[in-house]
Design a binder for these strands. Structure first.
Length: 473
DNA sequence: CATTTCGGGTGT
DNA sequence: ACACCCGAA
């Protein structure tokens, strides 16, 4: 019987792979927040730099480390003080703060700049603030016909500065590409990848000249392999994965290096099945994996072990949701409703600003408001494992409405979490302490849809803040 | 009870 | 609708 399926777990789903070979690229900005800060403060360029948020406690938490600083052993998730110990000359730049919380707008906008450039050549999916998938099959095919690799004359072209996985037969399996891609007998699909690599190299050059940012990229026939490849040679380099190299690449690849297997599922494979590498997975039949992990995940695992992945590049440049949250660790945890109310108000204001931007720039409105909170028990009571439930409701525009609605959601969650707690209106404004502490609050806006055309953004600007806004709800 | 703050996704 | 997971800076 199914051993693990009884546990609740998120399950990756396998999708069929298209018959025609695709050319997929994954582009990843190098230590992105650090680059953004180095562009803002040119005197930091070439110098060891890290980006920290909040520097009051042990110098703040590092969230991005420049490659100059990495040479000194500075690591992400170090504290500012630790980083200074490892690298006394390091420049620590703080994440901007707005409404008493970290504000990532600067980095979000910088990511959009890059995305706009990369989208010129094909279907573009913004996978995160600094990562993009591209489907450049069409552009690569066109180039193969018009300018096949055999005809490329200049060997020092930027387009040829790619690493090719599996090119060397001994030792380090990855070397600088030379004439390999131009050999007369190269397979059609390899030539397609070569053309894709040329295109990506040009795009990366465009990104550098137009934004000053360097990025790394992987070029392969699917998203999984492209993502794997983009991390193989950093910073500011690109890597090609020909089909012929897939088996050799995966055989000894630690299982947690594969996308979606970096967490619990990967750990489960290792401790329960002794699977340390993707190669180790090959010995399990598809039926066995389906039996162990369910049909979806079983199929997905079987295919993933073989480098097969049919996920399509979604043509999506804009986020599906916006969120604004803050944690209140240790002594900063919130004790009562009025403290929660204060922070809900701040977060609502930030969220409303994000929603305004989305209307103005993209003509989109969000329809769902969700509140998440985290908590821990104050007194060492019995059931300290209980989770604070999240709650949602229809999103009404306006910072006051969002704040009021979010506060209602908090109280609703509170009643579910602790039905006995007195929440009578009379007590609401009081500062009576919770029997536990709130360690985090987050508001998110989702179910984003296109604004009906009749509401052009100019009209919206006029309506903003006025009574008429409830028309959108 | 000190990474934090985002985003995207699936299972039920 | 809600719970929980993955991953990136």
């Amino acid at each position: 019987m199914c051993v693990f399926v009884l546990e609740k777990r998120r399950m990756p789903v396998a999708r069929p792979e298209p018959v025609e070979a695709r050319v997929i690229a994954h582009v990843d900005l190098d230590c992105f927040y650090a680059q953004v800060e180095q562009r803002r403060h040119p005197e930091l360029r070439g110098k060891p730099t890290a980006v920290v948020q909040y520097n009051s406690w042990k110098g703040g938490a590092l969230i991005a480390v420049s490659y100059e600083a990495r040479k000194f052993g500075v690591k992400r998730s170090m504290r500012g003080e630790e980083a200074r110990k490892a690298c006394p000359d390091i420049h620590l730049v703080q994440v901007p703060v707005a409404h008493d919380k970290a504000d990532l707008k600067l980095y979000r906008d910088a990511g959009s700049e890059v995305c706009a450039i990369l989208a010129r050549m094909g279907k573009c999916e913004r996978a995160s603030i600094d990562e993009v998938y591209l489907d450049i099959t069409e552009a690569a095919t066109a180039r193969l016909i018009q300018d096949p690799p055999q005809c490329w004359v200049s060997l020092d072209k930027e387009a040829l500065k790619s690493h090719v996985v599996g090119l060397a037969t001994d030792g380090d399996a990855t070397v600088e590409v030379g004439h390999w891609l131009q050999r007369k007998d190269a397979e059609q699909n390899d030539q397609l990848l070569a053309c894709g690599a040329a295109i990506i190299a040009e795009l990366r050059t465009a990104v550098l000249s137009e934004t000053q940012f360097t990025c790394s990229a992987g070029i392969a026939h699917n998203k999984m392999l492209a993502k794997l490849a983009s991390g193989m040679h950093k910073p500011a380099q690109q890597t090609i994965v020909p089909s012929s190299a897939v088996q050799g690449l995966l055989t000894d690849l630690p299982i947690n290096k594969i996308g979606q297997l970096g967490g619990k599922l990967g750990h489960l494979l290792e401790v329960e099945l002794g699977v340390k590498t993707a190669g180790d997975l090959l010995q399990f039949s598809e039926a066995k994996l389906q039996d162990l992990f369910g049909m979806n995940t079983g199929t997905w695992l079987w295919r993933t072990a073989r480098g097969i992945n049919g996920d399509e590049v979604q043509g999506r440049m804009l986020p599906k949701s916006h969120s604004s949250g803050k944690t209140f660790p240790g002594p900063k945890s919130l004790k009562d409703l009025s403290a929660v109310g204060h922070w809900v108000r701040e977060l609502a204001e930030v969220l409303q600003e994000r929603l305004d931007m989305d209307i103005e720039q993209n003509n989109r409105i969000a329809r769902l408001l969700t509140l998440h909170a985290g908590c821990h028990l104050h007194s060492s009571g019995a059931d300290h494992a209980r989770k604070f439930p999240s709650q949602s409701c229809a999103l009404r525009y306006g910072k006051e409405k969002i704040a009021d609605d979010a506060n209602r959601l908090f109280e609703k969650a509170l009643r579910k979490f602790c039905p006995t707690l007195n929440l009578s209106p009379r007590k609401k404004g009081s500062t009576a302490s919770f029997p536990w502490r709130v360690t985090g609050i987050s508001l998110s806006a989702s179910n984003i849809v296109a604004t009906p055309m009749v509401y052009s953004f100019n009209l919206l600007r006029c309506l903003k803040g006025s009574m008429v806004m409830f028309w959108f709800m």
